[in-house]
Design a protein around this nucleic acid. Sequence first.
DNA 1: TTGCAATTCAAACAGTTGTATGAAACTATC
DNA 2: GATAGTTTCATACAACTGTTTGAATTGCAA
Lengths: 220, 220
Amino acid sequence: MPSDHTRSAILAAAERLYADRGFGDVTLRDIVAEANVNLAAVNYHFGSKDELIAELFVTRSIATNRERLRELKAAEEEGGGRAPIEVILRALVGPTLRGCLGPENQRSTAARFMIRASIESVPPIRRIKNREIDHLRKFAGAMRRSLPDRNDVDIYWGLNFALAMAHHTIRESERLTKLSEGQCDLDDVEDVVERVVSVATMALTAGRTEAKAPSRIAAR
Amino acid sequence: MPSDHTRSAILAAAERLYADRGFGDVTLRDIVAEANVNLAAVNYHFGSKDELIAELFVTRSIATNRERLRELKAAEEEGGGRAPIEVILRALVGPTLRGCLGPENQRSTAARFMIRASIESVPPIRRIKNREIDHLRKFAGAMRRSLPDRNDVDIYWGLNFALAMAHHTIRESERLTKLSEGQCDLDDVEDVVERVVSVATMALTAGRTEAKAPSRIAAR
DNA sequence: TTGCAATTCAAACAGTTGTATGAAACTATC
DNA sequence: GATAGTTTCATACAACTGTTTGAATTGCAA
């Protein structure tokens, strides 16, 4: 066993620095200084800077996705293949929100890193995110089973809006806090989860699905 | 009148290149080549690269904000100081969505630039976005007048979710198209606006506001 | 201990970046 | 048409970037 000391020191230092200062102004030299290793070690162990970033992001997002699917599977098994839509949505947005929100001073490095990744979206990360569609399809399938009356388009829009609310709230949590002068409590993660889930549920269940286009009121 | 030829050629070329290839890999040399002007012209006319980007973004976002406020003001005047919540939300998300969505081949350079700005979020742009809170406060105020029974926290969350759905749909429009295999029609902008507005309206009007915390079902 | 592979290291490389300079060209005013 | 102010230009600068190199060191197996 090759001890792995250098490799994991680089990973830890890189995640910490990226989390604190963003991808934009952290260089390999910053990372190796923080990790107390030689500059060439990054290319030796990871091949390139981008592959280092990719490995960091893949590790974390695999963990999140696994947790999502675990919750989803448990819910569907309990319901005999059909889970309530709220529970599906909670499985979709819960792990992400729990991973990224919560009291700032006790946010893990991993969480702060994932927030950065959500805000800055550098090329290696974007490439990985593009491969996440298969994962989302599983949720679309579960939602379709849960709401067999709904047409696919509504399902996809509901899924899109659920992710929108979760990710935007993470990305712009500071702004929401400032806008509301602290009245919106972003530290109460379970409250945030329930807010997102309840709105997404309404989006998916309100009205009948017959009329494909929603009531179109002329905007001007 | 100093003709302004060089200055506006730089602005046009920069906006086009940033729109097409993103901020990440467009250099000043690319821009001056596209604009057929000298390299030093950028620093002469704008001071620095960041100030050039800032000017581009400020111009576009001032235009959007003006349109938003125009719609909001018209609605409130018509309603005697109190506009229906749907109309307020339409004024909030309509201009942005109309500016950034629609048939890809007829999207303006400005629209594609704003999509980039929404995705990549470079420092000079982030600085400007942080100053937009005052603008959002005006909408929060209008929403409060429209829904006097709602408490502030719910208003802010509704505002947050409305922006979330609009911006996320813009940012991830490609992914939604791919996920839905083209079934979700992102080119029908007014349909998108109505979907966002109707969900946001539900978020803001459903249930009573008495119970500060929504029904909390244990997630696990 | 010897030998061999894996790892670490200092140093340099090659390229790019935004910015600064100072002279040249232009423009408009008197 | 001389002058003053603005704008353009070629060029250089200085700094920083990720990556590579080849020698030194380490750790382990024979």
